[in-house]
Amino acid sequence: MDRIPILRMGRTLLVTVQVDMHDQLAVRLLDDLTEMITKTRARGVLIDISALDMVDSFIGRMIADVAATSRILDAQTVVVGMQPAVAITLVELGMELPGVRTALDVERGMELLNDAGDR
């Protein structure tokens, strides 16, 4: 069964999406992440989508759902590495991902999560 691996670094979960995701894979990632947040008591989720060459409304909604679910479970989600062409297309599609924190790369994403953890 296909699965996107989730790495744990301290109290942060790190996901690097490297495949062209079909819908069920995206749904499974949301389920797995939710379970992992609870199990590991993670405070942050970092999703690296720099390898994704398109984000459509379904994947966009999955990202928004991860952010919303993790917030309820007291964890912050940061999405990093979105390609400029993907960002432009998402906005034109009508998805602006409200409530999703973003950063340019993994390093800055980690900084954001660490800052949030210090508070």
């Binding site: 079909h22 060459d53 459509d56 062409a85 993907v86």
Partner: peptide, 30 residues
Amino acid sequence: NEDVVVVRQRAREQGRRAGFSLLEITKLVT
């Protein structure tokens, strides 16, 4: 579900054949 991914890949190939830019391909594929 997997066929949707195949459609994306074919759209990308056709966009390249038509000489599209990266942004044009991204919009087409989406």
